[in-house]
Design a protein around this nucleic acid. Sequence first.
DNA 1: CGTACCGTTGAGGTGAGTCAAAGTAAGTGG
DNA 2: CCACTTACTTTGACTCACCTCAACGGTACG
Lengths: 232, 232
Amino acid sequence: MREHIRSSNMPPTDVQALDKTIVVRGFSRGEKIFAQGAVASGLYCLRSGHALLWHADAFNYKTAFRVVEPGEMMGYRSLFGEDPHVATAQALTACDVCYYPKEAVLELIDQHPKFARRFFRTLARDRGPKDALVLRGQHIPVRVRLVNLLLLMLSSDMCDRNGAGVIQLPMLRRDIAALLAARPESVARAIKELGEDGLAVFTGRTVAIPDVDALYQHCNQEQPAEAQTAVP
Amino acid sequence: MREHIRSSNMPPTDVQALDKTIVVRGFSRGEKIFAQGAVASGLYCLRSGHALLWHADAFNYKTAFRVVEPGEMMGYRSLFGEDPHVATAQALTACDVCYYPKEAVLELIDQHPKFARRFFRTLARDRGPKDALVLRGQHIPVRVRLVNLLLLMLSSDMCDRNGAGVIQLPMLRRDIAALLAARPESVARAIKELGEDGLAVFTGRTVAIPDVDALYQHCNQEQPAEAQTAVP
DNA sequence: CGTACCGTTGAGGTGAGTCAAAGTAAGTGG
DNA sequence: CCACTTACTTTGACTCACCTCAACGGTACG
């Protein structure tokens, strides 16, 4: 969000006006930041901590589709869609959230094309191919989906020169399961297998990856023959 | 698209300028309108016919996620995201497509906040909960996913007073399978079952639904106990 | 009247869900 | 600091929906 404002060459007076409207609030683990079905009244931006976005379908089956990292926004989809929130945002860890009232955001968007353009980009990139693979999975074994999740988390984390990496997962096994559209039991089994193969060793919420490239290869070699599901 | 322009109170000169940039082209069944990985250079709008959007993952496994109906837009996601297309658009039936060059669209968006607002809405609503259920499925049996697809198609089709309806499907079994993230064989079996239960009778690409409400109920009663996959 | 392609049906295998129970970590109160 | 509760995680046994492979019937089109 800060980034959006900076890169849009907004006059300082407008920035100050926006800052006045901001509400900051802390949330503790498990607390809901906003709930599915609630009317969207503003924009949320994560200052610190991690949050999870998940959607419950008609059968009350919950599927998580995004881990929100510090600095990222959430709730913009329903804000612009003028629909109630289609997902629930829940704090994975203790976190601080900025809240921008709807009117303030929309006004700035109307007045600053560059600012609007940035939002278009964010909106258009949301739920792109990045998450797609991990999420739609289904034909992909849970183990491979888990590997993909790890590789996604890794990019925003550290990773040393030797091709090794360590991830501090902000979420529980249950949350991982929700992200993979799988069951916690299945995730546990996948974790066990990855450990036995020496690809990724889980110790609590810490994941040690001896060789990142090996993980990448693991994804690709699991490929089952020639898959064809749509028009040629 | 027409709707967007009309509702944004644009001066007629701008509308005419846009109209000059339009390129209209016909596509025959199976032809690709744009391809995944290609650089996005404009906006596509379907005049007539039907198109299918599908995404191929790293394993070349193809999943369709949207049936584009006459009057709807496509390709806007990658246009604003400034990324290559993440999906392929393919003609399901013979169809006519308008093409709006990128520059023309972006210029109008910068100059007309109301027009921009409309696009925000379209973008934000795309891939909302409507499609989610049908797509993520996985925990939902193929039969129920199929029923959901039928109900989605029905809303944009006809449906008489007695609660009966008839759908003319624009796509092949193979395409249905891609939309449901299933295999054609599984779709065939689901179709057979629906026919035996008298819920929906398939004759080629024509679907006769004696009782729409019964279909709705069918979705809900299939529910498997209490599902819980994310933080409580 | 072939040649394709599409659609359907059958048989067999399997990944992952379900259920149930044991093991482990975390947080609470005396 | 230790019992105790609570929640999370892991394991095993079982089941099942769907995928795979393979064969056959149907329809369109040259």
